[in-house]
Design a binder for these strands. Structure first.
Lengths: 254, 254
DNA sequence: CACCGATGCTTGGTCTGACCAAGGTCACCC
DNA sequence: GGGTGACCTTGGTCAGACCAAGCATCGGTG
């Protein structure tokens, strides 16, 4: 929106920004696809008429967004900077740090998780394959181990929810679910470790997972959505209660 | 997951990655908050024992993720790199480029939109303020203008959906909705411009918006969710049909 | 002929040092 | 007192250099 005078100051875009834009243009227009290679940094720099440093800063941005693989040295077939298409890592990192900056609190995240996972659950119910179900059941079996350390349980829990998202066969839902889950991993783990009545809670989680899994297997989309909804909100209630007791206040800024 | 031998190759992390990690640690631990300043690049580099280039590459990554404001030169109060907390820009850019890389197709995106906006709509229905409703109605009034160019209509449509998300008072839902909408802005605009029976479609959209807005105003969460669901799926059906006719195939890779 | 090691090229990772431009500060001069 | 110009700080950019890792090639050795 222009300001009152209709004029706004020019923002000179920096060299590396223009490099990012060029690459993104090529991707948007379909010129660059997953697996394609960008020119070597030195060549690319001279092609674009900028310094190698500018190119490198641009490549770092693209890599951080999951657009490029970690570059490899040498002359091999996949040496250099290769177009990737792995949004999850960047997405997760981005969400995690913004969660830490308290742009998003746990209530908001829970609400979004419920929305996304309800959708995953009902899609999964209508189209999960046998191998999807087998994967989910295998994870649940491993979670039944009473001697499992908390962090392993938490990781398996994460894997289960990711398996559910994958069963929905929707990569965006999967990526968002994975990213959000990754972003709050530490928070959840902390909650797990502080649990007052841990065994009861863990058993409740196991029962809810089984029941969700059953609903998916039976193809009951509505029940699957409701199960995952109750499951997430239930644990969130316990977790936020636990966390509030152990960290009553965030320390004030200096 | 470790490989069969239980050993996996070390991945030496690069200098700039360690810088990013340091900054993120400080954010995760609460040491750095929104508005705080990082040291000047030169000082920061010598503090961390790396070159200025490494620091700069790290700052670019953080900036791309919306963690830092665009740095300002000079000695002013907000000169240098300031912690930001603006996830939407980075999120949108990230999603857009991954949409272009066909990591996500329009069906998947629509499903995710429906999931997120159903949640927004029902939350909004239960807690929208008068000013939220006024904002939404004002946008709808402006969309009634028959002479509006298609791109303006599209932008107002976007604004309406963002206003809905904001009425839900959940910043994560808002950020995700905005980012996804931004990622498919061009696609939707293209669909708008290719519409066969444009007036009929636009009028249908207007009716659906009004009816959604009414449901929110009446506090009817379930109806609001269903309205937005039908609205999004309906337009998606038309849009994908239109787009398929105008661009029957993506050209094969060379 | 098959195998293997040395050598050299390509490529990313890093650092140093330099210059420019923009924004602020402050002392000096009218 | 007010303007103004010198100076400092800070990011933006570049050139050039060196290192280490990965590959390819070639020549020697069995």
């Amino acid at each position: 929106m222009p300001d009152a005078t209709g004029w706004q100051p020019l923002i000179r875009s920096r060299a590396w920004e223009q490099v990012v834009d060029r690459v993104e243009e090529k991707i948007l227009s379909g010129d660059l696809r997953i697996g394609d290679r960008l020119p070597p940094e030195r060549d690319f720099a001279s092609m674009l008429g900028v310094s190698r440093a500018a190119v490198r800063e641009a490549l770092r941005v693209l890599e951080a967004h999951g657009v490029l693989h970690r570059p490899r040295v040498g002359t091999g077939r996949d040496s250099g900077s290769v177009i990737a298409g792995t949004p999850t890592t960047g997405l997760s990192r981005l969400l995690r740090v913004h969660v830490a900056l308290s742009n998003f609190d746990l209530d908001e995240i829970t609400e979004a998780r419920v929305a996304l996972e309800r959708a995953s659950a009902s899609l999964a119910a209508s189209q999960a394959t046998e191998s999807d179900l087998a994967r989910m059941r295998e994870l649940l079996d491993r979670m039944d181990d009473e001697t499992l350390p908390r962090d392993r349980f938490n990781d398996l829990d994460t894997d289960f929810h990711m398996a559910l998202a994958e069963a929905a066969d929707n990569r965006l839902l999967t990526a968002l679910t994975t990213a959000i889950r990754g972003a709050i991993r530490h928070t959840l783990l902390h909650a797990f470790e502080q649990l007052a009545d841990a065994d009861a809670v863990l058993n409740a989680l196991r029962r809810q997972h089984r029941s969700l899994c059953e609903a998916v297997a039976q193809g009951d989309a509505d029940r699957a959505a409701d199960e995952v909804d109750r499951h997430i909100r239930g644990f969130h209630r316990i977790a936020s209660h636990t966390l509030n007791r152990s960290m009553p206040r965030t320390p004030p800024a200096c």
